[in-house]
């Protein structure tokens, strides 16, 4: 049990309050959606084992509080992040406008060695709401912003319906992995799939 840990990839989810950060994380890790999630206080995380090119990794996903007033905690929580996920609600313009603030705040507080090339992924969530009729941020507009910020990968998701969530997190994992310097990658001699005692495993039905 107490064997050396599998390589850990740390992912931080940021975005305005109520855009669906907790829901996205839970949909990806537990394949569940609930209307009863409470506001995140400080930060919380879930882990998930992922496989990429025959290798197993532990994705540690940090869900953060959306209210700006918690931002001073960033230094502590963003430390060592391998990828940052920026989430907005396609039905709330302000949450899109704020992406820039979240990105800049992250770069200041996490202080990555190569900020120019630090991997971000942008998610436009809640596309299911009102059959798309209450949408105020177009896909085109979002993609243009992502392109201008150094070709950030962009996904439109619905945490409620589970739409595109897996694809988005696969991309997130891949980018987190790319960010990890090659020499730090090590693998234990034997991979103990399912023996880690973690609650969340990716052995659930993928179909």
């Amino acid at each position: 049990m107490a064997s050396r840990r599998r390589m850990l990839l740390k992912v931080i989810i940021l975005g305005d309050s109520g855009v669906g950060k907790t829901s996205l994380m839970n949909q990806y890790v537990n394949r569940k959606f609930s209307n009863q999630y409470k506001a995140t206080i400080g930060a919380d995380f879930l882990t998930k084992e992922v496989q990429y090119e025959d290798r197993m990794f532990t994705l540690q996903i940090w869900d953060t509080a959306g209210q700006e007033r918690f931002q001073s905690l960033g230094v502590a929580f963003y430390r060592g992040a391998d990828c940052c996920v920026l989430v907005y609600d396609v039905n709330v313009m302000k949450s899109f406008d704020n992406l820039n603030n979240w990105r800049e705040e992250f770069l200041i507080q996490a202080n990555p060695s190569d900020p120019e090339n630090f991997p971000f992924v942008v998610l436009g969530n809640k596309i299911d709401v009102d059959g798309g009729n209450s949408r105020v941020v177009s896909e085109k507009k979002a993609k243009a912003w992502c392109a201008a910020k150094g070709n950030i990968p962009y996904f439109e998701t619905s945490a409620k319906e589970g739409f595109n969530v897996d694809a988005a997190f696969q991309c997130i994992a891949k980018n987190a992995l790319k960010n990890e310097p090659e020499e730090e990658i090590y693998l234990p001699d034997t991979i103990d799939v399912g023996g880690g005692g973690r609650q969340q495993m990716s052995t659930g039905c993928e179909c």
Binding site: S17, G18, N35, K38, A39, Q67
Partner: peptide, 13 residues
Amino acid sequence: HQIGLDVVRTDRT
């Protein structure tokens, strides 16, 4: 609006 966003997800069970 922040208060509102939190109220609608307070003790909803």
